[in-house]
């Protein structure tokens, strides 16, 4: 077999492989979209579940997920960005920073169920928050923290050192250099990281299983110590333990589609904001 024939065969295989795998992946997406689109309407988005979750909507789950996402990032985003600024701009290259970095990297790969375990034990039991928005948000925040630190660090690293040198050489202080030169340059990537972690946090089930999620609540949470419903857990419940699983299937498809739409929106938003900010900067 000469080299042209082997190229032909190899490329044929790869093309087939590519087409097959892409078709499979797309069909999953298509399957949920087609089944979900029939269900989603205003009523589905704005009503409470009814009749053993076979009718009605998912409004409280949407609200719960919204609260949880906001709550977790309210604490994880500032802390993460500031920690990254510290390790990247202030701390030297000593062993402390190296250790912190190694540990954040490890933490970023720790399975989410382990966060759930920790959150339940510390926030729910030891600190006595009970199953609550507070405990759930803190747990999810811890999960998002290493991700935010990492993306922020990468964003700061991508700012060329010459920018810093140029600013410092003009007599600017370190704070001025960071706030006027480094942060604006790194902002598109930091924002992208934030938005992508919104997508991640809003879809996590394992960490909220034992810290906040409720099977069903007839009212919306009214304070941080209340339990809440959440979209991913709601889908889990609908899929595995509803009173009448067959009858609640349509609800499950609808919920799955809403979750996909959230991730899609976040991805689009991230791309959009990034383009916008980059354009503005290059002007």
């Amino acid at each position: 077999m000469n080299k042209k024939h082997s190229q032909f065969v190899a490329f044929l295989i790869f093309k087939l492989l590519g087409i097959i795998v892409v078709l499979i992946l797309f069909s999953i997406l298509g399957f949920i979209i087609i089944n979900g689109v029939r269900v989603i309407n205003w009523e589905f988005l704005s009503k409470f579940p009814g009749e053993g979750m076979t009718t009605g909507g998912i409004f409280p789950a949407i609200v719960g997920t919204l609260y949880l996402t906001i709550g977790s990032l309210l604490f994880a985003f500032p802390l993460g960005v500031m920690s990254a600024l510290y390790t990247q701009e202030y701390a030297g290259k000593g062993w402390i920073v190296k250790t912190i970095r190694m540990m954040t990297n490890n933490l970023a790969s720790v399975p989410s169920i382990v966060f759930g375990l920790f959150g339940m034990s510390l926030f729910v039991n030891k600190l006595n928050f009970g199953d609550s928005l507070l405990a759930g948000s803190l747990t999810l925040g811890l999960l998002a923290l290493p991700v935010i630190i990492r993306t922020t660090e990468e964003a700061l690293k991508a700012v060329p050192d010459t920018y810093r040198a140029a600013s410092l050489a003009l007599g600017a202080t370190k704070l001025q250099t960071i706030s006027k030169v480094v942060l604006p340059a790194a902002m598109p990537n930091i924002i992208t990281g934030l938005i992508l972690s919104i997508g991640r946090v809003s879809g996590e089930t394992a960490p909220i299983l034992f810290t906040v999620a409720a099977y069903f609540l007839p009212h919306l949470p009214s304070g941080v110590f209340d339990q809440a419903m959440a979209l991913p857990y709601h889908l889990y419940v609908l899929a595995t333990s509803g009173t009448d699983i067959e009858a609640s299937r349509p609800m499950a498809y609808g919920t799955a589609l809403v979750l996909i739409l959230i991730v899609l929106t976040m991805n689009l938003l991230a791309t959009f904001i990034r383009r916008k900010l980059e354009k503005k900067r290059s002007k």
Binding site: L25, L29, F31, I32, S202, E204, Y233, A239, L259, I260
Partner: peptide, 13 residues
């Protein structure tokens, strides 16, 4: 996008 879809959705599928 597929990489970002929550695992519970895959589980449901």
């Amino acid at each position: 996008l597929l990489a970002g879809i929550p695992s519970v959705v895959y589980g449901f599928f």
